[in-house]
Each structure stands twice: as structure tokens, then as C-alpha cells.
Design a protein around this nucleic acid. Structure first.
Length: 564
RNA sequence: GUGCCCAUAGCUCAGCUGGAUAGAGCAACGCCCUUCUAAGGCGUAGGCCUUGGGUUCGAAUCCCCAUGGGCACACCA
């Protein structure tokens, strides 16, 4: 649970704040109030290892030019007992810090010590958080939206877990409401058509056209025959749904498992209706004077949700809307199950629902700050430079399973997490299957395989990765070695930022950088055949690289092959 | 019509709560395998950060306007 970058940041903060206070005492700076400062890693190596812009930020209250402020801070700074070796003033007033390379050797020790735990931090303090994602419509197969939401949601959950939260992954089964009714009428129509011919009954206009509907009924007929032809419509639709829905769910579960996603909870929407959740929530809204009756329906007042329009909660046929159920669902998450933080992943087409949902939460007395909705843009697939809609294999619209079959789980998970959730994602099917340097997944996996085969070869010659205390890490002093260690040392910080921003796509980019730093190192520095002490030190570095790449890929649920 | 998101190299994208000369990868071009995996490395070239205003010591980043894309506005979920 050690984070060297965090430690250094703290050191810099302490010495800078100390210096500012001292400068105030000296009356070199006027009295001013400052508690936190920004520490960043400069892009340019020439600017040192870390830098702060604090001098420019307090320039106004200090009533001095930024460079002048910076010089005062530097003059009064005390870097005793820190990693800081050199402090300089540069540019418009940046204060740059150059560190003793000892911090890099300490970083290596931490990696070797924590191994597969390296990168786990504790900013969550065991806080109970639910990540609800995919929650696909169970009336059909998983589509591209589910695929992206799945990859993203699972990674967010993994990151939060690594950041010290108590994470629950949840899938909401939408097994209530209109889409189930439509599912039933669609199944019913196909059932009759299959037995009595395509013209026997018209297919419902808004029904599900997919062939899977007919396939369910073909299988059903094989087992039960035509005995449901004479059964009451409502009753047999229920039978059909009860037959087909579990089959779909089974396929969804299977598909998600092969995609590397495992849910802790499969939550049935029906239980909200069957239990008291929906009724209680509606009553609560009524009690809070948030509702109004009109045209035989019950509405949530627009004023409550900051809208000009009221929203229907209970239809004039007495059936609650999805919105009502969703409010109840969120009340259930927080109040009945005690989650302190909930993250929902929704396709961008649901963005209009976010403000409504948060406002509704306020209306039932739950702070909307406890809910985060991560919206992700939808996906377009490309093949041969054109938008691809159909699966090569099945000829039907491309499902998650088709995608995984065509390009493999690793590529899919990598590609979907390589871009920020807010950006539209064009998925290049040709690129994803290419086993070449054009394909970033293979670049990373290759680095890992290269390391493993290297370690294996040396091992076969009796050279093993030593423990840190048996090696002299200070022999690692080449530029490429420093760059690699620096990259490795940043990993806990990457996890922290990913967790704080709920934007973990930076991790795929990070692991690419690690791989690149390793490949550079590999070309510049040999291990095998070097002098014994140097071999030891470099072996440790190589092993640390292996650990970090493996840890990131594990988080991403992408395999880290030993050889390729 | 109202609202939300997006616009950065030829292509796909980064750019953290405003900061130093705007960064990667791919594609292009030129080098590097008698030595641990060349699925690799090193280098070159490539930019009016969509237009126009504003705030600031300082803007790709914040605000407004325009343009061009995507999406949402149901007694659907």
C-alpha cells in the first residue's frame, strides 16, 4: 500500500508550505493563507522530476512578481531528510524539484515487496460502493453498447477495488414492464406462426423481430408441442416468457463470463414490484408532496425535478412506469442495502435521465452526490473501412459474442478501454485482429512475453531473480533504466487518478507507456552476459516491469501471456 | 424548437482542478539483428488545438456567439 509518488508530493508540499510560512515570518512575504498546493510532473525532463506553480498562484496576494516569489520560497526552503536534491526557479515562475535517484531505488523495493498487490492503495477505506452496469435488456442478446459498458464498468469496479473500496458489481434484470409484455406477444405470435403458418396471425408492429424469438419457440414446440394453441393468451404468454427469459439470461451470463465479467448480484426488477419497494417509494413521494394526479395517472411534479413537464409515475391503467421503479431501485440500493456510493453506467442515449434521477433522489431524501452516472458514447464497428453492422459468421447484427469470437476478449477489452468514456468509439475490426505492431494489445502482451522468456532463459542457466537486499540497485544508472523505473513508480498514482475521476481509460495508455519504456530499455541495456552484479540489478528491474504489466492487465482482465 | 455531449497531426486519440517549446500510437520516410523474442529499437517529417469574441500575468483547457457532427426530449426502458 505504499505510493512513492504520493510520499514525494507530500514532502514537497511540506517543504514549500514550510518555506512560505518562514518567509511570512521573515516578512519577505506578506501574510497569506495557503493550505494546499499543486504538485505536477513536468512534461519536459529538463524541468526536473516534479514542479509546482504555487509562486504564480500567490503572486496576487503576495504583491510581487511570480519569479520573485519563487526565489523567496527557494531561499527559505529546507529540504533536509527528503528526496529533494535540487530546487530551481524556471520559466514564468515555476519551482522545479530534482530528486535524489534514491527514490527510484525505493520504488523498486516497494514493487518487489508488494508484488501482485502493487498498485493497491487505500483511498476507499472500505466504503461500500455498487457499480451497476450492463443491465442489458434480457429479451435479446448483448449488443455493442453492453460490450463497451461492460468493459468500462468492470474496469471501474476493479479500479475501485484496487483503490480500497468494498465493491459490488450488480446487473439489473429488466424483467418487468413493457419490454417483457412485448417479449411475450412476440413469442406468442411466433409460436402460432410456427405451427399454423406465417399468415396465421400478424406479428405485432412493435414486437422483437430478431430470429432468436422464433428459435425460442422452435425449441419450445419440440418439448411442449402445440398444446398452448388453445390456452388463454395471457396465461400462455407468461409460460413463453418464463421459458425464454431464463434461456436469454443464461446466454447473457455465459457471454459475460467469457468476456471476463462476473457479477456479484443479479437483481430482478420484478422484486421491486412484488415487494413493497415501488409502493413505498410512491407513497413517500406522495407524502413529500411531490406528486399530482391528472388524467387518471399519478405524476411526479416537474417542479421537483427542475423540469417544465411532469413525469408519469403510475399510468392510468395502474401500472407504475420504469421511472417509478427506478426511483424505488435507487432507494433500495441506498436505504435497504446500505450502499454509500453508487455508480451507474448508462449509454449516452440515457443522458436525459440523469438529472431526473438525481432530482428524484433528493425528493426521497437521499443526497444525489452519492450517485454517479458514467455515460459512455456508443460504438461504431468498422470493417474494410466501412461501418459493419452484420456478423461475418452469423449474418445477424453483431453481438458481444460475435465480437469476442472474431477478435478475441483481450483486444475487445483493451480497445473499449483505450478511450475516454465521453468520446465516440470507432472500433476497427481489422486492426483488432492484426497480430502486429499496429495493434497496441499485442505491443503490451509482447513486452510481457519477452520478459517471461528472458527470465526463463536465464533461469535455465541458473541465474535467478535475486532479492533486493542481494543486489546493488545503484548500478541502474542509465537513462533508459531511470525512465523505466519512473514509469513503474507512477502506477499507484494512475490507480488513484482513475478511481477519483472514474475515467480508467488512462490505464491502457499507461501500460502502453510501460511497455514502450521496457522495449527501449531492452534495446539499450543487456541483462544476460553482463557483469554479475549488474545482471542482478537489471533482473530485479525486469521482474518489476513484469509485475506491473501483469497487474495492469489483470485489472483490465486481459491475459498476460508467458510467450507469443 | 428545447436540452446534453463532442470538435486537437493524413488517421485514431491523450492533454489532470488554466501554466513552460501542445503530446502519443498508426500511416510515411531513413537507419539498427554473429549477442536475452525485429510482434522490437533509434531518428526525420507532420499543428492557425473548427471560426470569432471575452476573462487572465498566461487559454487547447474557463465564459459567450457561430459552424459542423452525435444524442435525448413517450402513460418506452
Amino acid at each position: 500500500m505504499k505510493n512513492i509518488t504520493e510520499k514525494i508530493r507530500q514532502q514537497i508540499k511540506d517543504v514549500v508550505l514550510g518555506s512560505i510560512h518562514k518567509s511570512i515570518e521573515n516578512e519577505e512575504l506578506p501574510s497569506l493563507d495557503i493550505t494546499d498546493i499543486l504538485i505536477e510532473i513536468p512534461r519536459e525532463k529538463g524541468y526536473g522530476d516534479f514542479s509546482t506553480n504555487v509562486a504564480m498562484q500567490i503572486t496576487k496576494v503576495a504583491k510581487k512578481a511570480p519569479r520573485q516569489v519563487a526565489e523567496i520560497i527557494i531561499r527559505n526552503i529546507d529540504v533536509k531528510d527528503t528526496y529533494i536534491k535540487k530546487v530551481t526557479c524556471a520559466g514564468p515562475g515555476f519551482i522545479n524539484f530534482t530528486l535524489d535517484t534514491k527514490y527510484l531505488y525505493d520504488a523498486i523495493e516497494i514493487i518487489k515487496e508488494e508484488k501482485e498487490q502493487y498498485g493497491h492503495i487505500n483511498i476507499g477505506n472500505g466504503k461500500k460502493v455498487m457499480v451497476e452496469f450492463v443491465s442489458a435488456n434480457p429479451t435479446g442478446p448483448l449488443h455493442m453498447g453492453n460490450a463497451r459498458g461492460g468493459a468500462l464498468g468492470d474496469l471501474i469496479a476493479s479500479v475501485l477495488d484496487a483503490a480500497g473500496y468494498d465493491v459490488t458489481r450488480e446487473f439489473l434484470i429488466n424483467d418487468a414492464g413493457n419490454q417483457i409484455v412485448k417479449f411475450g406477444t412476440s413469442l406468442e405470435a411466433r409460436y402460432i406462426q410456427l405451427i399454423k403458418g406465417a399468415d396465421a396471425v400478424p406479428f405485432p408492429q412493435d414486437g422483437y423481430q430478431g430470429e432468436d424469438i422464433a428459435e425460442h419457440m422452435k425449441d419450445f414446440i419440440e418439448i411442449h408441442g402445440d398444446k398452448y394453441l388453445d390456452v388463454d393468451s395471457e396465461e400462455r404468454r407468461k409460460v413463453f416468457v418464463d421459458f425464454a427469459l431464463p434461456r436469454n439470461l443464461g446466454k447473457i451470463k455465459e457471454g459475460l463470463e467469457s468476456y471476463g465479467i462476473h457479477f456479484d448480484v443479479w437483481f430482478s426488477e420484478q422484486t421491486l414490484h412484488k415487494g413493497n419497494d415501488v409502493a413505498e417509494t410512491i407513497q413517500l413521494l406522495k407524502d413529500n408532496d411531490c406528486t399530482i394526479e391528472n388524467e387518471g395517472a399519478l405524476w411526479l411534479k416537474g417542479s421537483v425535478i427542475g423540469s417544465e413537464k411532469d413525469e408519469v409515475l403510475v399510468r392510468n391503467n395502474g401500472i407504475p412506469t420504469y421511472f417509478a421503479a427506478d426511483i424505488a431501485y435507487h432507494r433500495n440500493k441506498f436505504e435497504k442495502r446500505g450502499f454509500e456510493w453508487v455508480i451507474n453506467l448508462w449509454g449516452a442515449d440515457h443522458h436525459g435521465h440523469v438529472a431526473r434521477m438525481k432530482a428524484a433522489m433528493t425528493a426521497i431524501g437521499i443526497s444525489p452526490d452519492k450517485l454517479d452516472v458514467v455515460l459512455f458514447q456508443l460504438v461504431r464497428l468498422y470493417r474494410n473501412g466501412e461501418i459493419a453492422r452484420m456478423s461475418k459468421r452469423t449474418g445477424k447484427s453483431i453481438s458481444l459474442m460475435d465480437l469476442v469470437d472474431e477478435v478475441g476478449k483481450d483486444a475487445v477489452r483493451f480497445f473499449f478501454n483505450n478511450k475516454t468514456s465521453g468520446s465516440h468509439l470507432d472500433f476497427d475490426l481489422d486492426l483488432a485482429v492484426k497480430q502486429s505492431n499496429e495493434n497496441p494489445v499485442f505491443y503490451v502482451q509482447y513486452a510481457h512475453a519477452r520478459i517471461c522468456s528472458m527470465l526463463k532463459l536465464l533461469e535455465s542457466e541458473g541465474v535467478h531473480v535475486p532479492s533486493v537486499k542481494d543486489a546493488n540497485l545503484e548500478l541502474l544508472d542509465k537513462e533508459e533504466e531511470f525512465e523505466l523505473i519512473k514509469k513503474l513508480s507512477e502506477y499507484p498514482d494512475e490507480v488513484r487518478i482513475s478511481a477519483e475521476t472514474l475515467e480508467p481509460s488512462r490505464l491502457t495508455r499507461y501500460v502502453l507507456e510501460v511497455a514502450a519504456a521496457f522495449h527501449s530499455f531492452y534495446n539499450a541495456c543487456r541483462v544476460r552476459g553482463e557483469e554479475e552484479q549488474l545482471v542482478k540489478a537489471r533482473l530485479i528491474l525486469v521482474d518489476c516491469t513484469r509485475i506491473v504489466i501483469k497487474n495492469v492487465l489483470d485489472l483490465l482482465s486481459i491475459s498476460a501471456p508467458d510467450r507469443m
